[in-house]
């Protein structure tokens, strides 16, 4: 027992309270930023809700890319599947309760994750990256062709979710959608923080570093990755469903290559493998995009490009990753 306490006292990895504190601080930060956003931009809640939905996509991408080491340019396939699943459930099956729609979105995303994962895990490295691009194009084309179900290139319209708890309607101001989205994000964030510290999360991190070592420990590499893909799909699907609920329409862009690539960019901007970085990256990128395109509608893409180059050159571990590194250095010097 004494040894156990000595190890726990000296180290940072297994000292539970320390981590819990960090998670709670993270949760508090999410809620604080959400609250500030609500107060500062009451007329722009639609954008904030979209940021929340995309944050779920980027969190989900962090699970497979940051924690498992799988580079993918097709992750929006899972996001879009969740969006279409929720939208189709509402339009064609009359499932209009927002919680039920979110659940359908999560299940749809998880199913898409299983399918995409089963294909992706056949390849390694560049081949895997190419497979991910092929997958998102196939999903996109399927949604485009199945226009009876999806509305094709016109988008799936006519989604009208019920009020939350039968009280808070999804109005023009988007207050309900925003609070609903932030609630989902907060719960998902806490659950994922628990997930990445669990034995399963540790196994995934091991696979990222050396799959051969993990299989030499008797664990199934592909089985573990496929499971993580399903979980990641559920999170992305929740994001998609949130987007469908808040905008009341699902478009083909929700499962596009562009959305996939942007999600990866956001993750790199924020920093991989911490979940905090995913949130920081999404917020920074989308806020900056909105801000720059408003002040200079002609050259905003140039400015975005410059931001990316600056981040990659000066903060190679992403904004969050580099910031924590600097803090650690300062801390260790004291």
């Amino acid at each position: 027992m004494a040894i156990q306490r000595a190890i726990a006292a000296e180290g940072k990895v297994d000292a539970g309270p320390n981590w819990l504190l960090r998670d709670l601080m993270g949760l508090a930060a999410v809620l604080a930023v959400a609250g500030i956003g609500y107060l500062l931009f009451p007329n722009n809640l639609a954008l904030l809700t979209r940021i929340t939905a995309i944050a779920l996509l980027v969190l989900s991408l962090d699970l497979v890319t940051g924690y498992c080491g799988i580079a993918t340019l097709g992750h929006a396939a899972l996001f879009g599947s969740g969006a279409y699943a929720a939208g189709i459930a509402a339009v064609h099956f009359d499932i209009t309760d927002p919680f039920a729609m979110a659940a359908v979105g999560a299940v749809g995303g998880a199913a898409a994750g299983l399918l995409a994962g089963a294909i992706m895990l056949r390849g390694r490295g560049l081949a895997q990256l190419v497979l991910s691009i092929a997958i998102v194009y196939l999903f996109h084309e399927t949604a485009n062709k199945a226009s009876n179900w999806t509305g094709g290139s016109d988008g799936l319209a006519g989604i009208s979710p019920d009020p939350v708890f039968g009280i808070f309607g999804f109005d023009l101001w988007g207050r309900t959608a925003y609070v609903f989205g932030i609630a989902i994000l907060a719960v998902v964030f806490v659950l994922l923080r628990l997930l990445v510290r669990s034995p399963f999360g540790m196994l995934c991190r091991g696979i990222r570093e050396d799959p051969v070592r993990v299989s030499a420990m008797g664990a199934s590499v592909n089985g573990t990755l496929l499971r993580m893909y399903a979980i990641s799909g559920a999170v992305a699907g929740l994001g998609g469903a949130l987007n469908a609920i808040s905008t009341q329409v699902v478009g083909l862009d929700s499962l596009s290559f562009t959305t996939s690539a942007e999600a990866l960019v956001m993750l790199v901007v924020g920093g991989t493998g911490s979940l905090f970085g995913a949130l920081v990256g999404t917020l920074t990128f989308m806020w900056f995009e909105d801000f720059v395109s408003a002040i200079n509608p002609f050259h905003w893409l140039t400015i975005i490009g410059a931001l990316l180059i600056a981040v990659v050159l000066f903060a190679p571990n992403g904004l969050y990753g580099t910031a924590t590194q600097l803090l650690h250095r300062v801390w260790n010097k004291r």
Binding site: V13, D14, L195, S198, P199, F200, G201, L203, I231
Partner: peptide, 11 residues
């Protein structure tokens, strides 16, 4: 127990 999605070995 390596597949558990909750808890931490420290506990």
């Amino acid at each position: 127990r390596s597949g558990r999605v909750f808890g931490n070995f420290g506990a």
